[in-house]
């Protein structure tokens, strides 16, 4: 990736900045949040935004801004965790499939095809309903439905790199398959994989939000942004700010990641630039 190209893309830079602000804000929530996110205050129920409660309060008088900051930790760390898991699973299987071919390739493709045939959200809904997940199990469930995309990209990258002259040269001078794969092939897949993983994390965030919105994600009292929208469902009409702010947080984050990924793709000379 060329930084000079990236920095000239205003949308990409804006995406990066928004993402930084949201990440820092969420992870510094204990110090930044103006109120205790779980503090129930029955004398301050459903206050509109403004004054002491900048983004208003919910049906139990809890401060929306503080809850938003704390929920961001869950949403963002889940997105990061799931993407991390999916990269590990997807790259390993994809690289194996592309490099060794034969039965390994057929099995990996079969697994990826089968998983991709079942709508990811539906599968995650069932797993979420049955498992009553915590952060880790939820991350594993989402990673298990997310890896096939990365495996496909890794496989196709490895397949084309395997035919390159420098790979042939490395084999010709006696490099073991493992050495050729890790020293010569994989380093060349890093750039497209970073872009793919970035764009995947945006999708993961959307699926997790939908899952939590439907009530199959993290259980209360630990909300993610989607979970906040789920809790507030009955109060959208009286207190629209309960519907607006968590949704804006999701939209801004996902858009920021998408713009960032787009800019990174252009800067690394990919297609669709």
């Amino acid at each position: 990736m060329r930084w000079s190209v990236f920095l000239r893309n205003p949308l990409g830079v804006a995406g990066l900045l928004v993402l930084l602000v949201f990440t820092v804000g969420s992870f510094a929530a204990p110090w930044l949040a103006p109120h205790d996110p779980a503090a129930v205050n029955l004398r301050a129920m459903q206050l509109p935004p403004g004054g002491e409660h900048l983004l208003g309060t919910d049906d139990l008088g809890r401060d929306v801004l503080s809850r938003l900051l704390f929920a961001g930790r869950i949403s963002l760390s889940l997105a990061l965790l799931v993407t991390g898991f999916a990269v590990v699973i997807g790259c390993t299987l994809g690289a194996l499939a592309g490099f060794s071919g034969g039965w390994t390739e057929r099995l990996v493709s079969l697994a990826a095809d089968a998983l991709l045939s079942i709508p990811a959200l539906g599968l995650a809904m069932v797993a979420g309903a049955i498992l009553r997940p915590n952060v880790l199990t939820l991350a594993i469930v989402l990673a298990l439905v997310a890896w096939p995309d990365l495996a496909r990209i890794t496989r196709s990258q490895v397949l084309s790199l395997r035919e390159q002259t420098f790979t042939e040269a490395a084999v010709a001078v006696g490099g073991s398959p493992a050495r050729v794969l890790f020293r010569h092939v994989m380093p060349n897949t890093v750039a497209p994989l970073i872009v793919a993983a970035t764009l995947l994390s945006a999708n993961v965030l959307l699926v997790e939000s939908a899952l939590s919105f439907l009530g199959y994600g993290m259980r209360p009292p630990t909300p993610s942004w989607g979970g906040m929208l789920n809790e507030a469902q009955a109060f959208y009409r009286q207190s629209p700010w309960l519907a607006v702010f968590p949704g804006l947080a999701i939209t801004f984050t996902v858009a920021a990641i998408n713009f960032l990924g787009d800019a990174m793709r252009s800067a690394s000379g990919g297609r669709g630039a």
């Binding site: 949308l11 945006a202 959307l206 939000s209 939908a210 919105f213 439907l214 989607g226 929208l229 469902q233 959208y236 009409r237 629209p240 519907a243 607006v244 968590p246 949704g247 999701i250 939209t251 996902v254 858009a255 998408n258 713009f259 787009d262």
Partner: peptide, 24 residues
């Protein structure tokens, strides 16, 4: 920009907002 923004809005949220504004 329009296209990427459209892709980034969670449907359950935009759906709820549309219902809130145009139906409720």
């Amino acid at each position: 920009v329009v296209a990427v923004l459209g892709m980034s809005v969670p449907t359950f949220w935009s759906g709820a907002i549309v219902l809130l504004v145009f139906s409720s």
